[in-house]
Amino acid sequence: MLALALGQPIVLGIVQGAAFGLMAIGLVLIYKSSRVFNFAAGEFATLGAFAYYLSKDKVPVPIAAVIGVVVGIVAGLLTERLVVRPLANRPKVTVLVATAATAITIIAVQFLAGATGKTFAVPALWKGTLPFRILGLYVSYQQLIVLLALALAGGALALFFSQTDLGLATLATSQEPTASRLMGIRVNRVAMLTWGLAGGLGGLAGVLLSPTLGNFTPAYGTTDLLTQSFTAAVLGGMTSVPGAFVGGLALGLVQNLAQFNISSDTLPGAQFVAVLVVLVIVLLVRPTGILGKEA
């Protein structure tokens, strides 16, 4: 049966893809500055979503959202300080495994705290829908905010790297850490900056995306966001902020087009298979990514 559904998957795909893009930019930042794949990134998003959920009844919703982002930042900073920095002289694969262990630890804490099997409902930052349809679909303000956040984060980071001395120092640190120290750059501070930024982007993705789905489950950043964001980052070349941005949107579209057009009788979990297929194709055909340059 080939009734190609387009409207809904395109709109949902762009929104979800924006969240993937935010997280992918965080992965790229960390990869650029320390050549590490950060498997803890998904749980930065989950922690952000939990902080949002736990504070939503105690403070106004926008403040709860800010708290979620701050918790993401703190999670990033702590991971840098407690996990990554002590392993600075070890092989990169050790650091990679350590970030995966960090994710598993954070997930274990959620289960120990009794979150197993529950779902957590979160409110939209801005309720309601646009007064007109796009591709036959009502688009919520929340969905719009996710997209806007990606555009702002992508634009701000592109400016940061191309226009500021600190951005230049971040690039330098990723290319030649020793020479960067010899310039007087405090490379530990650069690492803190990138991990804090990545944590904040993860937290933001967690806070903004979960309301578009209505609720979230424990470890959702790892189960629903990490593989996709990772694929998006690889698609963009792993070192390119614009690449991660574009890769995120592409992944959101692929996932939703597969989900809406391949019935679960034909291929259960088609949306996840589609993501993995993209990942494998990129790695085989163009391992440097679609843009394939540092930016």
Binding site: D165, L168, A169, L171, A172, Q175, E176, T178, A179, S180, L182, M183, I185, E294
Partner: peptide, 14 residues
Amino acid sequence: RVFPALTVEQNLRL
């Protein structure tokens, strides 16, 4: 140990 993916000018700036 120059910064290989940065320009001459950016290296000097650093």
